[in-house]
Design a protein around this nucleic acid. Structure first.
Length: 142
DNA sequence: GCCAACGTTGGC
DNA sequence: GCCAACGTTGGC
């Protein structure tokens, strides 16, 4: 069975990869964008998602796994919003920055590049593999 | 801290 | 259903 890949953004000041690792499991709440919500609802148990630090860091730092499919967001006052539960799977050997992703031509169509403001977005298997490969190699010289 | 991009809201 | 105004995200 094919696994789907995603990318979820969080400002580390609000909720960081370290916070998720310490907690062991987390609920991805507070999404208030229809596109992002729809992506949450497409997530299946066992899907993998990059954890991206927006604003501070601007880099992918780890991979989480979806451990509960979508259910209503208890933090929403009205509206039709959803959450999923995630757990940390593994940290990347080293973070892959937005600048590196922009510089990699095969990743130019990533939603991260094309639709900067979408906080929950799909990642293709090829994109996922490429970023893993980048995370295992040395950072580009500058 | 600024501001461009863009998603959402609401008047018509 | 259009679109202007508004608010928010997030890179720089």
């Amino acid at each position: 069975m094919a696994r789907n890949y995603w990318l979820m953004k969080s400002e580390p000041d609000a909720y960081s990869w370290d916070t998720l690792c310490q907690a062991g499991r987390g609920t991805w709440d507070g999404v208030r964008n229809f596109g992002a919500r729809n992506n949450l609802r497409l997530m299946k148990l066992g899907d993998h998602a990059f954890f991206y630090h927006s604003n501070v860091g601007r880099e992918i730092v780890g991979i989480s796994e979806i451990v509960r499919e979508f259910y209503p967001d208890a933090t929403a006052k009205g509206g039709d919003w959803s959450v999923v539960d995630v757990k940390p799977l593994s940290a990347l050997p080293r973070p892959v920055t937005l600048a590196e992703i922009r510089a990699e031509s095969s990743l130019k169509d990533m939603a991260l590049v094309r639709r900067a403001r979408l906080s929950v977005q799909p990642v293709t298997p090829d994109e996922f593999k490429m970023i893993l490969k980048m995370a295992k190699t040395s950072p580009p010289a500058r």
